Amino acid sequence: MTASLSKTVAATLCMSTLTAVAAPMTLDDYLALSGPQPTARIAYGSAPSQFVELFRPVGAGPFPVVLLVHGGCWTVKFGGIEQMHNVAGALAAQGIAVWSVEYRRVDEDGGGYPGTYLDMNMAIDKLEADAAAYQLDTARVVAVGHSAGGQLVQWIAGRGKLPPASPMFRANYLPIRQIISLGGLADLRNERDLIKSNCDRDMVQLTGVASAMRPDVFADTNAAELMPNGSTTLLITGELDTVSPPRIAHDYAQRARKAGDKVATLILPGASHYDEVAASSPSWNLILPEIRKALGLAL
């Protein structure tokens, strides 16, 4: 762990002893989250869910960018991009542009494997193509994902390790090396039972089926297989998160360190799975500085 990341963890522990923690947010609290409307809605494909919402700060750029990927257990049932308006608006108020990605989920036509991953590729391609038009600085990008979105941003970091035979393989792509996963469920192989029990997802929905050409379905879908990838990853999880408990973050961090990547964990005191994406939550006071730090901004 780097010195700066060690200081972050120490600051968290200090804050947990000095600051009264609000009641943890519930799923209903999360579903009720709202925020400002986006500056623009930009399609990156022809399907209804293939679009991004841009939250552009006031003033002249180029602006640093948060590539924001919502969660929802990979299904349309639990909301997603609309709830992200809450933190997207807060980030735009900080002078940070937000490229908030909608994508095809497992219960939508074309979603799951490989469509959901292809959508990540196309949304990032669109960011690169449109950056100049919106004054976005693609040299300063951090990918921030929540829950299922955490799995997807952790997968994004490993795109350079994809097998050439994978349908998601790209020879040329915009690398994103700064990753913040909020309650992410990234290790599909080792956490398949938890993902089934907490999200009711059959792993085949996220990995596809094995074939002679693709005997290991985790080789191109599991972020934990795509290391080392040169990323710096921060795994942030609520102390009271029952969807993606702190153990998940610690176990993944151990695997990443063993592989040779830079990774740290930050456990939010008194927080649930939903405080992680609410700018009104005390947890946001710990998360926002980490986003700013990943973008090279003053704290």
Rank of each mutant, 00 (worst) to 15 (best):
M1W: 07
L5G: 02
S6Q: 14
V9T: 08
T17C: 15
T26M: 08
L33H: 08
S34Y: 03
Q37G: 11
S46D: 13
R56H: 15
V65I: 08
H70W: 06
G71L: 07
G71E: 04
C73L: 01
W74C: 00
K77Y: 01
I81W: 02
N86C: 05
V98A: 15
V101N: 11
Y103A: 11
R104V: 02
R104A: 01
E108L: 00
P114A: 05
P114V: 00
T116M: 12
T116N: 07
M120R: 08
M122T: 04
A123S: 15
K126L: 02
E128S: 12
A129F: 04
A129Q: 06
A132N: 01
A133K: 15
V142E: 14
H146N: 11
S147C: 10
G150I: 05
Q151K: 14
I156M: 08
R159G: 14
P167A: 00
P167S: 00
P167N: 00
F169C: 08
G184F: 11
A186P: 07
N190Q: 12
L194P: 01
L206Y: 14
P215I: 10
V217W: 09
A219S: 14
T221K: 04
A223Y: 05
S244E: 06
I248F: 14
K258I: 14
A259Y: 03
T265K: 02
W284H: 10
A298Y: 05
